[in-house]
Nucleic acid binder design. Sequence first.
RNA 1: GUGGGUGUAGCUCAGUCGGUUAGAGCGCCAGGUUGUGGCCCUGGAGGUCACCGGUUCGAAACCGGUCAUUCACCCCA
Length: 425
Amino acid sequence: MAEVHLPKGMRDLLPAQMQARLQIIDTVRKVFARFGFEPLETPAMERIETLMGKYGDEGDKLIFRVLKRGEGGERGEVDQALRYDLTVPLARVLAMNPGLAMPFRRYQIQPVWRADRPQKGRFREFTQCDVDIAGSESPLCEAECLAVASAALTALGFRDFTIRLNDRRILAAMAAAIGAPDRLISMVTAIDKLDKVGEDGVRKELAAQSFAPEAADLLFSMLGGGPIPEVEAYEAGLDQIIGYAHDLGVAPGRVVKDRTLARGLDYYTGPVFEIVVTEPKIGSISGGGRYDELVGMFSGRKIPAVGISLGLERIFVVMEELGMLGAGAKAAEVFVTRFSDATLSETLQAAAALRDAGVPTCLALDGGKLGKQLQQADKTGARWAVVIGPSEAKAGLAQLKDLRSGSQQTLPLTELVAQVKAALG
RNA sequence: GUGGGUGUAGCUCAGUCGGUUAGAGCGCCAGGUUGUGGCCCUGGAGGUCACCGGUUCGAAACCGGUCAUUCACCCCA
């Protein structure tokens, strides 16, 4: 056992995992592009003050801080941090680039870091797939977000997922109605556990937070669909979003309003949403919402914005457990063996010809027994092996062996290439 | 930040009540005679039983600590 370790909660992605992962990213990226989003990347690190105070107390604690210029450890000085999400960096970009044409739609697929304790489907380094729309207050933005996320998941093969939808302002109205407008957070964290601990558990939690029993009664009547003062417009807004999303192709019934959905991040100001799957117990695979004040925190210029984020690692875990990951790409389709020095030139030229034709081709580097090389060919997953020995070389031919059937034929190189290309479609 | 589980070969794991040379499967290496893989057969390499300390005549096993990892809570993707 090697005495080296990875940083906690981080991992290497070996080729077998990378092949599946790249397929997922490719699928998601194409869907994002299809919805008219443009790519953006930002640095792994931000200045600490850019990140602080955007995520709430809980979030701030989880920000990965970086020592000042990599030094100053004794004094504990920090001035930079690894980004916690892709939304705040986007807000900074918007503040710094006033010339961007406005409704600005961008996608961004990059890792983010959180100093969490790792557990199932949770890592300290993970990749978010974000789409955001800035510069519009239209509920169509929310609908676009739900539609693009839904399309991406569908393209990946997801069938059973639910989009939960709520509005921060409805939660605020409930807090006001029970006479605790300033205690939104503790109310919200209590009711957020409803499906986990049940009504009794939430009442206990509320009591522990010194909410009056009457307040709890009122709260549950509102959660149960009872009237909430002054939220008609927000409710109507959510219905509108659902209607638009439906027209944009989101399956009927997929989006459900849920008054218990809270979302922890401080910067959300309006509609919030998350996507959950029931099968592997992994919680949400996606989350987002509207954050109309965030950009203004950097520039003073208010720019409304909405976004949604897909968690690549969680999606991967779900797909893995549900057997949704296809065969995965292989290293090469053709493995060219190295017979001897006398035929090396012809061998290399054969590999080059295959590669020129666009056929993924692996070359035996060290030679050795032919049987050994064919074993190696098997491990690469190649479908064919090419052998060029003295007799083939002398006749200007090459031997093509089908590694599935074991059959082989000797033919001119150009025909060999054409045949492989044809078989690959 | 809080609580639990686990740590034995490259991997997945056995290992009885504390007992002498610590095992299996898979993988790896070599061979089964010439230029042909998979299957089969034979042989082989590979271990500080995570680390440190303690109890004991004797510890992989029991106790304590450390480290790593994993799961749950909180929160989140």
